[in-house]
């Protein structure tokens, strides 16, 4: 078990390093000298040359890469060209917003998804089942930007219940959270329903009923616990996706999160900032997968044994 966990950890670290190298190389392939971009159109050649040396851009790419990794391990991701502040500082403050958004979105998505999935499974083919499954189909198939614009139009513009964009206070997080969680709610509801339906057919559900458990007891003590195994894995991956920066949602609702920071970095050709945000997102996704895997191992005694 411990050996398996370590093995997977090592794998994750390697994947992360690979991702970092890829990002690093891709940014070097883009034509144009970042130092020239940084100094502006009218800088003269000697100034650009000095800047290039200062940034270490005259060194071989691999040397640059290892320098970057070494610095990154110390928490130093360089200084943003466009904003003039340390990248780590910018990412930290953006991450707070991304985190709040992700927690809001996932909390509502999971509660909604699990409850409606359970009701749909227990009352299979009933009106609530059809309603929930119809809504969840809309949830998984409607693109985020469309949900976002509908929410902005109806709840923000017409009814004026909530701010259309910006996060001057916490109410600003509500609409983006709904838009961002919409998809997850739909897929969680569908997965809960189908897993639960499968599990309610299992022999051990009969055993639980033969013991004298009522419907609620069968559901809570035996069925849900087993049904949650795949659902929890899905949720861990969803959360890591949200934490790595919801580019569209953050942009549409002007939430200053990691996703929006990355978009800013791209539009201003801010290489250190882009490198930092992309690497950060990759790290979050890799960690999310690692956690999902580990959770499965912890929750399912059958896997725990084999490992």
């Amino acid at each position: 078990m411990v050996r398996n966990a370590l093995q997977r950890l090592l794998q994750s670290v390697l994947v992360l390093l690979g991702a970092a190298l890829l990002v690093f190389l891709m940014l070097r392939i883009i034509p144009g000298n970042p130092a020239a971009v940084l100094m502006g159109e009218h800088a003269d050649a000697t100034v650009i040359k000095r800047m290039t040396e200062e940034l270490g851009l005259d060194q071989p790419v691999l040397v640059q890469f290892f320098r970057y990794i070494a610095d990154a391990l110390r928490g130093d991701f360089g200084t943003s060209f466009s904003l003039g502040k340390p990248v780590s500082e910018l990412m930290a403050s953006a991450f707070v917003n991304t985190l709040i958004l992700a927690l809001f979105a996932s909390a509502y998505a999971w509660i909604l998804g699990i409850i409606s999935g359970v009701i749909a499974a227990v009352k299979k083919n009933s009106l609530p089942d059809r309603l929930f499954m119809g809504a969840s189909l809309l949830g998984v198939s409607m693109p985020v930007f469309m949900a976002a614009m509908l929410l902005q139009f109806f709840l923000g513009y017409q009814l004026k219940w909530l701010p259309i964009a910006g996060t001057s206070d916490w109410t600003g997080f509500i609409l983006p959270a709904i838009a961002l969680g919409w998809n997850s709610a739909g897929s969680v509801a569908r997965l809960v329903r189908s897993t639960l339906l499968e599990i309610l057919e299992e022999d051990y559900i009969d055993t639980a009923r033969a013991k004298g458990r009522g419907q609620m007891g069968v559901l809570m003590v035996h069925a849900l616990r087993n049904a949650m195994l795949p659902v929890i894995t899905m949720m861990a991956i969803q959360l890591s996706g949200m934490l790595s920066g919801a580019v569209i949602t953050e942009t549409v609702f002007s939430v200053n999160g990691i996703g929006r920071l990355a978009v800013q970095a791209i539009s201003s050709r801010d290489i250190p900032l882009l490198q930092g945000t992309v690497l950060f997102s990759a790290a979050i996704v890799i960690i999310g997968n690692y956690v999902a895997d580990s959770l499965y191992n912890v929750l399912d005694p059958r896997i725990r044994k084999e490992a």
């Binding site: 299992e202 022999d203 051990y204 009969d206 055993t207 639980a208 033969a210 035996h222 616990r225 087993n226 195994l229 929750l299 399912d300 005694p301 059958r302």
Partner: peptide, 12 residues
């Protein structure tokens, strides 16, 4: 029941 493996809850 007939099948003693599947008749017990695997995670309990």
């Amino acid at each position: 029941f007939q099948e003693p493996m599947s008749s017990l809850n695997p995670v309990m």
